[in-house]
């Protein structure tokens, strides 16, 4: 596969800003919407934006997984549960943003502090051009193979541990929700 964006220069910047704006804007909308269904849909949009950001980093396989598994499967599970619970209108009212101004102020400060900390922690990575790195490593030929081989070879232990984790989650979810044993 050709390095779609590495050589594109300005195209890369445009793609990044578009996808980043999409992800951040939909994340904020997700956080502020009253209706849980709207929240889920905005989160799906946010994940599509994140998948776009993965593409600009040439992590193609993860971008596909992000859309197929995350936006597709997990978010549909959320929608199912919201529909299943059939939340009444008063529940929708009750999920409004904070009634106490203090909580809002604290939240805003928290947000600001977190962002400032992350920016200061990522100082060394200003001046590390993504396009430069992508050009240096050359075109990503087969990102499935690049991930799959180490996954089943070097990282077998966490992989097996994950399978136990999923089994525990399945058993637990069934045991918690079934009415009759």
């Amino acid at each position: 596969m050709e390095p779609i964006l590495a050589a594109a220069g300005a195209g890369h910047a445009v793609a990044f800003y578009a996808m980043a704006a999409l992800a951040v804007a939909s994340a904020v909308l997700m956080m502020t919407q009253r209706n849980p269904v709207a929240c889920v849909l905005w989160l799906v949009v946010c994940f599509v934006g994140l998948a776009g950001l993965f593409v600009t980093l040439e992590a193609y396989f993860l971008a596909v997984i992000q859309v197929l598994v995350y936006a597709g499967a997990i978010m549909v599970l959320f929608l199912f549960v919201i529909m299943l619970l059939n939340l009444r209108p008063e529940d929708l009212k009750a999920v409004a943003l904070p009634r106490i101004p203090l909580v809002g102020v604290v939240a805003a400060l928290l947000l600001l502090a977190a962002v400032v900390t992350v920016i200061s922690a990522s100082r060394p990575y200003f001046g590390m051009s993504v396009a430069g790195i992508l050009a240096e490593v050359g075109p990503t030929k087969d990102s499935v193979r690049d991930i799959g081989l180490p996954l089943f070879r070097d990282w077998l232990l966490p992989f097996e541990a994950t399978s136990i984790l999923l089994l525990a989650a399945i058993v637990g979810a069934v045991a918690l929700t079934k009415r009759k044993v």
Partner: peptide, 20 residues
């Protein structure tokens, strides 16, 4: 040009929005 730090800042903002 887009730097790696741009991605980290986006990650930081998303993390902060989620935390809030």
């Amino acid at each position: 040009e887009i730097q790696i730090a741009h991605y980290l800042v986006v990650a930081g903002i998303l993390f902060a929005v989620g935390l809030t």
